Simulated assay, not measured.
Amino acid sequence: MSDLATQMVRFTVNGQPVEADAAGDVPLLAVLRGEFGLTGSRFGCGLEQCGACTVLLDDEPAYACSRPAWTVAGRRVMTIEDAGRDPMLAALKQAFVEEQAGQCGYCLSGIVMRARALLARQPAPDRASIAAALDGNLCRCGAHNRIIRAVQRAAARLSDAGATA
């Protein structure tokens, strides 16, 4: 479905039903940022190499930079902006602040989304599991150890609170 015809795409973003015109292979990232003003997900490389654009698609990490918007019809998309409603995202964001896990912050929304997916599957991940889960995301500032500590802190906080996905 790579023709240039415009089609209406209906899906859910952060718990809200939405619809957008998606011409041809316009990327999901362009729709999220341009149509809905959800600018937390970033364009990095456009080649699924850096993870700055990572969102959750039906609770699984997905690159929004290269995924045509029409492919999310009828599905659920979660972005970093859902932190006010989602206790796991809120705990992760707070832990990232407490651990000073970001420097420039460009990569963090994608990393937090991937960490959110990990904690939903594995509430008490060890360091190796966290590193493996975040392997698809690139942080050029070198904050990897603080990022891992932040995910561990969020996991502990969520465990203490009894939070679930």
Rank of each mutant, 00 (worst) to 15 (best):
R75W: 04
R76E: 15
T79I: 07
A62D: 02
G74L: 09
R85L: 13
A64Q: 10
C50A: 09
P61C: 11
T54H: 00
C65G: 02
T54D: 01
G51Q: 05
C50F: 05
V72K: 12
M78Q: 14
P61M: 10
V55M: 02
V77I: 15
T71F: 11
A73F: 10
A73T: 11
Q49A: 14
P68N: 11
A52H: 10
A52Y: 08
D86V: 02
I80A: 13
G84C: 05
V55H: 00
D59V: 02
E81W: 05
D86L: 03
W70F: 15
V72A: 13
T79K: 01
A83N: 09
M78W: 13
E48Y: 05
R75K: 15
V72H: 14
A52W: 08
R76H: 15
C53T: 05
L57N: 01
V55N: 03
M78I: 13
I80T: 06
C50L: 06
V77C: 07
A62H: 05
C65I: 04
G51F: 06
E48P: 06
R76L: 13
L56Q: 10
C53E: 04
G51D: 00
L57T: 04
C50D: 01
R75C: 04
C53S: 07
C45A: 11
I80D: 07
L47S: 12
M78P: 06
P87A: 04
A62I: 05
Y63K: 11
R85I: 04
I80E: 02
D82H: 13
V55D: 04
P61E: 11
R75Y: 01
R85E: 15
G46F: 00
T54E: 00
R75F: 04
R75N: 02
T79C: 05
P68W: 14
G46Q: 02
R76C: 14
T71P: 09
D86E: 04
Y63D: 14
L57G: 02
C45Y: 10
T79N: 03
I80N: 08
A69S: 14
L47D: 07
D86K: 01
E60T: 15
D59K: 03
R76W: 13
A52C: 14
C65K: 02
R75A: 08
C65T: 01
C65W: 03
R75V: 06
